[in-house]
């Protein structure tokens, strides 16, 4: 009898103890809804007609669902093409950046050679070079190489920028792998290239995932370089540049603009939701190192 009472009060106390946390959580959910409100509004605006967009205010649920906005954004505003451009540029850039950062990080971490210290020093010294500083020579040299106004030129410029932190992520990871592993592979007769591709790179899978996800999002969202690389070639625009141009060209079609925004943003958001872990790891790496 007494034991039962004790159990019940225990549980009540635990519930009571949890209650403030639930209140805090609900409060935070409220803030979070306000936080993501611009996205909710954009999603709802992309389904309203232009008339309702102006009169509807902050109301989220459209009176009438207008799917036609998406057709207009996709065809008339060329977002179908912009999306393909963005996918092509992003995927190829991710592959180039991941490969070049993995190989560079690997040899810098595992081998001492003439100039290795200097190499690392130059990389660290240029960790924070802003695009606004390098943009003029980048455009100039691309003109000389006949790479301006082309997706190839844009891809090369994007994969040649910064990404020092990606090299450093690989560097840090490869450095802490024990030497015995390498020696065992050498005894088995593996050469330089085999050791890297069949021993080291598979081990570094988590880093590769992090670098790939971070690069994907950086490239997808890039604006400054795509802007100056497509000045005279509207058909080569990426979604971020297309959006800016959309407003200039068809200033009245705001619902179409919202639809174009949804088309452009959904891929990164979906990627983020599925690969969140790697993304967070990549960002916290900056603090830990």
């Amino acid at each position: 009898m007494t034991a039962q009472v004790v159990v019940r009060t225990d549980r009540q106390r635990r519930l009571l103890h949890r209650l403030p946390w639930w209140i805090a959580a609900l409060f935070l959910v409220g803030i979070a809804v306000v936080w993501i409100f611009p996205f909710l509004w954009m999603l709802s605006a992309s389904l309203k007609d232009n008339m309702e967009m102006f009169t509807g205010g902050l109301k989220l649920w459209p009176d009438k669902f207008v799917w036609d906005n998406y057709t207009r954004a996709w065809n008339d505003a060329h977002f179908g093409r912009y999306l393909i451009n963005t996918v092509v540029v992003t995927v190829i850039t991710v592959v180039i950046v991941t490969v070049r950062c993995a190989t560079a990080g690997y040899v810098l971490a595992r081998y001492r050679f003439r100039g290795s210290k200097l190499f690392l020093g130059v990389l660290v010294a240029t960790l924070f070079v802003p695009t606004g500083y390098t943009i003029i020579p980048v455009v100039k040299i691309s003109m000389q190489l006949h790479l301006i106004d082309s997706l190839t030129g844009l891809i090369l410029a994007l994969s040649g920028g910064a990404y020092v932190s990606a090299i450093l992520l690989y560097y840090g990871y490869f450095r802490q792998i024990p030497r015995e592993l390498e020696e065992a592979a050498i005894v088995d007769g593996a050469g330089f290239v085999r050791i890297f591709f069949s021993v080291m790179l598979p081990l570094a899978m988590p880093v590769t995932a992090t670098v790939a996800v971070l690069t994907f999002i950086t490239t997808w969202n890039a604006f400054f370089l795509p802007l100056v690389f497509t000045f005279s070639r509207a058909d080569l625009r990426t979604v971020s540049v297309g959006m800016q141009a959309f407003v200039g060209e068809t200033a009245t079609d705001w619902a179409g603009m919202a639809a174009a925004g949804v088309i452009s943003i959904v891929p990164v958001v979906v990627l983020f939701i599925f690969l969140q872990r790697y993304f967070v790891e990549g960002i916290s790496g900056a603090v830990k190192s």
Partner: peptide, 23 residues
């Protein structure tokens, strides 16, 4: 869920946010 919600603006395209916010 809360962490993701507060993080979402980071992954979205800044240039597009700028245009949408202007409206």
């Amino acid at each position: 869920l809360l962490r993701s919600a507060f993080f979402i603006p980071v992954v979205t395209t800044t240039a597009i946010i700028g245009v949408v916010m202007r409206f």
